[in-house]
């Protein structure tokens, strides 16, 4: 049930991500069963859902880590099921992904972690530019002093911020956040949420955010999509959904 109630000024633009009828299963288990979502430019949509409901699977389908069984996904106007490897790479250069487990390369220093996506995606970038961007992004997340450290020397919150820096270093148009504040203390969680909204403002990104943390949701969400039983069960702003009488929606706001 796509809510049409909150038509905003940016609505005239083509959505940066459009998911229609997405189905994905593993073996006999159906995880996503006809999921629909549109993400407009500059917007943040939070996806709420119980653990194991397929939230990570959803955004992994968007970035092409999983292939959809059925349905279509358009990212930046391209139908991703029709892209070849190079085409997908171009999309991936514009879509940042913050992994649930951070996924920092633990055999590399922080600097090398940030260097890696740049060296790979931007073939012609000069070493000076690489260095400049690394420093810039690390300063943005407030961790410029950790540049020579190994990920294992950093705390969980710091790792999360480095992981965020690694996604930001390519200046992506879209960022997909997989549970950015889970497992962090409330203060650090707040820092990360603030960082996310700041990033959104500064770099003008659009984002899909997966979260259980209602504080973070409240701070970052323009709209919220509720994922239940593999479909987008409800969508709306925080205030709209909070007032909902539906049992399945209400449980997230208690």
């Amino acid at each position: 049930m796509q809510s049409e109630s909150n038509i905003s000024i940016i609505d005239t633009q083509e959505p940066v991500i459009k998911i229609t009828g997405l189905k994905k299963g593993f073996g006999n288990r159906v995880v996503l069963d006809g999921f629909n979502l549109e993400l407009k430019r500059g917007e943040s949509v939070v996806v709420l859902g119980r653990s194991g409901s397929g939230k990570s699977v959803l955004i992994k389908c968007v970035i092409g880590l999983y292939k959809a069984d059925e349905g279509e996904i358009f990212v930046l106007g391209k139908k991703i099921s029709e892209l070849d490897y190079e085409g997908m790479d171009k999309i991936r250069a514009n879509v940042g992904f913050l992994f649930q487990s951070n996924a920092l390369y633990d055999s590399m220093t922080v600097r090398e972690n940030l260097e890696f996506p740049m060296r790979r995606h931007l073939k012609n970038i000069s070493p000076e530019d690489v260095e400049k961007r690394i420093i810039e992004t690390l300063t943005h997340v407030g961790l410029a002093h950790t540049i020579e450290m190994m990920p294992s020397e950093l705390s969980g919150g710091m790792q999360k911020r480095i992981a965020l820096a690694r996604t930001l270093v390519l200046n992506p148009e879209i960022i997909l956040y997989d549970e950015p504040t889970t497992g962090l203390d409330p203060v650090t969680g707040k820092e990360i949420s603030t960082l996310m909204t700041e990033t959104q403002r500064l770099y003008n990104t659009s984002s899909i955010i997966i979260s259980h943390d209602m504080k973070c949701v409240q701070r970052t969400a323009d709209r919220i999509a509720v994922l239940v039983d593999g479909v987008c069960y409800a969508i709306g702003t925080y205030n709209e959904l909070e007032r909902s009488n539906d049992e399945k929606v209400k449980q997230f706001f208690e």
Binding site: K60, I63, L65, Y85, D89, R92, A93, V95, F97, F99, Q100, S101, N102, A103, L104, Y105, D106, S107, F116, P117, R120, H121
Partner: peptide, 21 residues
């Protein structure tokens, strides 16, 4: 062990989205 831990901590996925096969 190395590839296994890279797999479970999603580092292999991260490489894939960073333009690396």
């Amino acid at each position: 062990a190395e590839l296994g831990s890279m797999k479970v901590t999603e580092q292999i996925d991260a490489m894939e989205v960073s333009g690396t096969n």
